[in-house]
Design a protein around this nucleic acid. Structure first.
Length: 152
DNA sequence: GCCAACGTTGGC
DNA sequence: GCCAACGTTGGC
């Protein structure tokens, strides 16, 4: 059984085009326990992920990525020079994890947050919730499929 | 263990 | 730039 996810990224920081260019990237720098738990406990190799541009015009689901590794230690947390350095995380006791994700598809038509909110078949999708700040969210298969369908 | 203060996220 | 939502921190 495959699981489905949505991951957010600010396109000025890392966009779907960056992922397309890189083919694959380590999804590191996540500093939220709930998001980490989803990566650590929920994500499996082969899971499909909606790539979402937050703080964009308009904020939109812009493509699909695929999980290509189990979770492993996020080394940026251990590097004092890194922006995402976290002194609470140590080599002996790392607290932050990441997975690798690979580019799968860039949507022909991005699906904006207003379209997501307006679609009754996407009722309850976390990203459409008021105040949704979680950068990694689980998705139901039918919701994943519906967003892909809307992008066609 | 409570809770106020504070910081961050992210849509608008 | 505003502000609501909400996670984290730290004093008690």
């Amino acid at each position: 059984m495959k699981n489905y996810w949505l991951i957010k990224s600010e396109p000025t920081c890392y966009s779907i085009d960056d992922l397309k260019r890189d083919k694959k990237t380590a999804w590191g720098g996540v500093r939220n326990y709930q998001a980490r738990n989803f990566m650590r406990d929920g994500m499996k190799v082969g899971d499909l992920v909606i790539f979402y541009h937050s703080s964009a015009n308009p904020p939109s689901a812009v493509g699909v990525a695929k999980v290509t590794s189990p979770s492993y230690t996020d080394a940026t947390a251990l590097d004092p020079k890194d922006d995402h350095y976290d002194p609470k995380s140590t080599k002996e006791n790392p607290i932050w994890m990441q997975v690798d994700v690979a580019f799968a598809e860039k949507f022909k038509n991005p699906v904006s947050i207003s379209l997501i909110k307006a679609n009754p078949r996407l009722k309850g999708v976390p990203v459409a919730q008021v105040g949704s700040r979680l950068s990694i969210q689980p998705l139901l298969e039918k919701h994943f499929e519906e967003i892909c369908r809307m992008s066609k």
